[in-house]
Nucleic acid binder design. Structure first.
Lengths: 144, 144
DNA sequence: GACTGTCGCAACAGTAATTGTTACGACAGG
DNA sequence: CCTGTCGTAACAATTACTGTTGCGACAGTC
């Protein structure tokens, strides 16, 4: 299973901050988010650090420090989060270079590369269709 | 990078066997395929074992043993390979259960689950559009 | 019946990525 | 100066994947 929970945690954190701010609070702390996500504050800080680099959140230091959204939830999509937290491509090539003397070994990487590019493009398109506002709405719509 | 090279290696092996059989050979050995893919024969056997379970290839034992296609390359798609070699979902949930007392912690998993299902469905559709025959053609079309 | 080549499979080491945890300095306000 | 939080480094724990070795099972040939 190649599964990464980073996109999930990223969406969780953004939805949490968004909801918290709508309840009138200025900033959310990594500890609060970590409690909700049931993990360690440092894990959240690392992840939010990547989201900050992508321009999705901002952080303040000092007393009354914490995290806040840099944009409205409506203007963020899962693609923004995905690109911020997922470094590599979806599918990888061989870890070693295939035998270039073999016809298949020589042609397989360019062939798969171009196929994968098309698939990733579709994936990105799908991720871009879901805003974080959509996510928060779905979250709040879950019956308790 | 969550990237798995299994789909790539699987496509490589199938294309290799397919081409080899078109050149008049009955079966291909794991060692030949491993040489082309620049890896260990056991890795290939493990992977082909999964493809056999999925009904894509067959294996013979004894002298003159090896692997052969169970179906035409035209009737196999990357989705068949993907389902045979990729066990888990594309995106994972939290590794621990989020705080169920929190509104976001409670609703995030069902919400993301349904979003991810839609995305995976699209991914499968894309993978199903590419046959192994397409892959082999692309491989042979790469200039040397 | 022995010999040979290959698969089937278990076991283990090596590598890499992710996550969890601790620690401590930096910062900003009271 | 004190406090609370971020920023970041360092390290352990866990997990997954890959590479490797070893050996038995099998099927054909001599």
């Amino acid at each position: 299973m190649s599964a990464n929970s980073r996109l999930t945690i990223g969406a969780h954190a953004l939805a949490w901050i968004g909801l918290y701010q709508r309840q009138g609070h200025e900033v959310a702390t990594s500890e609060q988010i970590a409690t909700s996500a049931n993990t360690n504050p440092v894990v959240i800080r690392r992840l939010l650090g990547e989201l900050r680099r992508a321009g999705l959140v901002e952080s303040r230091r000092g007393v009354g420090a914490g995290w806040s959204l840099a944009r409205e939830l409506e203007s963020m999509t899962l693609l923004d989060v995905y690109e911020a937290v997922e470094p590599g491509p979806l599918f990888a090539m061989h870890r070693t270079i295939p035998d270039q003397g073999c016809v298949v070994g020589h042609g397989i990487q360019p062939a798969m590369q171009s196929i994968y590019e098309g698939i990733e493009k579709t994936l990105r398109h799908e991720l871009a269709r879901v805003t974080l506002e959509n996510v928060l709405r779905d979250v709040l719509a879950v019956p308790r």
